[in-house]
Design a protein around this nucleic acid. Sequence first.
DNA 1: CTGAAAGCGCTTACAG
DNA 2: CTGAAAGCGCTTACAG
Lengths: 350, 350
Amino acid sequence: MAEETVTGRAVGPWATMKDVAALAGVSLKTVSRVVNNEPTVNEDLVARVRLAATQLHYQPNMSASALRRLDGRSSTIAVLLEDLSNPFSATIYRSVEEVAISRGVVVVGGSFDEDPSRELVLTAAMSRHRVDGFIIAPASRDHGYLAREQRAGTPFVFVDRPPVNLEADSVLSDSRDGVTRATRHLLRFGHRRISFLGDLTTIYTSEERVNGFRDAMREANVTVDPRLVHLDLRTAPAAERVVGHLLDSADPPSAIFAGQNLVLMGALRAIRSRHLQHRVAIVGFDDLIMADLLEPAVTVVAQNPERIAREAATMLFRRLDGDTSPVRRVVVESQLVIRGSGEIPAPGDR
Amino acid sequence: MAEETVTGRAVGPWATMKDVAALAGVSLKTVSRVVNNEPTVNEDLVARVRLAATQLHYQPNMSASALRRLDGRSSTIAVLLEDLSNPFSATIYRSVEEVAISRGVVVVGGSFDEDPSRELVLTAAMSRHRVDGFIIAPASRDHGYLAREQRAGTPFVFVDRPPVNLEADSVLSDSRDGVTRATRHLLRFGHRRISFLGDLTTIYTSEERVNGFRDAMREANVTVDPRLVHLDLRTAPAAERVVGHLLDSADPPSAIFAGQNLVLMGALRAIRSRHLQHRVAIVGFDDLIMADLLEPAVTVVAQNPERIAREAATMLFRRLDGDTSPVRRVVVESQLVIRGSGEIPAPGDR
DNA sequence: CTGAAAGCGCTTACAG
DNA sequence: CTGAAAGCGCTTACAG
């Protein structure tokens, strides 16, 4: 056993190939062949080695084998997202895990919290661990610094946000179109004073969502009142405050588009505390787990995180399997889920 | 650079210590000293090595250093939970990540989905990766198989569920007490026909929750009608069906305790579709993100996943730092959050 | 303070 | 089909 070696190191009872070889009465190389299921080994020896391995509870040391192996693969991938405790990131992580586990690959996760310096720290840490590939929703807006590692053979698949200054695969939602369709929906119910509430403008998807809103308004020849557009909203309380002011103002919006989950929740609270839930229309981006239980139920533009993750994981593993075809950009459709809150007509149309 | 070595292997431009040493004109050992911040190196050499490392974008290979180092530490821990896409697991993962990142440790995650065989597969995979420690919410009910690895020096901290046939640290919610307090709360509002809906009886916490319910009923000398107790409910639709039957029956419950998140959602749907939300009291276990926005808002027994995770991570790292004190079992208090749905009085008391 | 040699657990490359 | 030697990138143990 390892703890009896000459160096006297006390790493505990991890049996090594050497230990298994000694017990089975074969060479270390034969153990290696059996462990790696090489077909050329005599079946008697295979049986003896397997027995010895079982008796010693042998578990191969993957880092050691990765170190020596030509491909250097660690059977580890990194999934780095905005915040693994939020439902969107968590669902992506879990869905990637599902694809990874079926290939015996383990997933190490990380959250950027929209902090580009944390992105640098975490990607560097993953590099030191020599992960085989990355699925990443970056916080920064310049990803050129990853080019070296990419050239070294580590594939990157971007999710939710496109790569900038880097040629890499990506899987994105059709945020802009989704918001355009939702805004048209509100316009169809007679709304003209529509308020748009958005997340940090530094985030690619936030930008896309405001743009989608502006697209639909322009298309309908409705002027956007700048007082109704509020960006860089990150928390529910912040959104609640802003929406409260809007609703209490002389010329309030008749409809609201909430560009993000927490913002939607804050807006709903402001509306509810004023008992306006049946008078002011609201549509949110990203589905909420209990949206159907509210009164009225909440209409949303739902993304498809499971599908985004599955596409991304499939692309990543295809690259790891040697696919060298040109970079792809996959767009996953978002869907307007009509539930009631978005179908309240404008005052003039009632 | 690595790709120019004699073996001709094409692992890409990962610079090695040898490369840095050559560029800096020092020995490999000196590079090792600088990389590991050993204080005994001449400052001129330090500067030269750092410059060379920067020029080559050198990133140390952690698996290689772990392989040789006496402690064998990989700077990786495993966080294995029920399902990383559910809010409880996701919050635990994220909070552990926070503690880990501050120590330069990377977190690999996994979901068991209540499948004991998946637990075996994932823990074995983590062993092959030689993770330094485990934070685990097991699916199985016998953890003796982990004893060997534990003796090898890998610490285990159990969360949400206690270790069985294994001496290990654990951090648990006071589920049983929490449910007892919530049931007393319903009893205080005059309820006698209280329905209990629970998750898989194989899960430790599910068992605790029913027990907590029975404790409170016994204490109040109220006989539990077995027709009102439904266990092994896993999904919202299943719970919706069961609660529908109960509400439509001749002698329906006046109050419901939902022992789990999805079950709570199903129960709420059944109640709402019958317009009984202001007549039938309901309390759930685990907080819901929008519980305050429902009508009436939902009273719950809230756990504290952030605190559970922080305690667990702190204990794990303390063990990794050499703490050999006796095994500890930490209990984190759950809290009854009163919002309205649990304060609807029984018919006789109205 | 600096470095040459040995070795961590494994796979490669080669010989028999 | 089987094995002895070399080496992956690094740290240890030792010498100067």
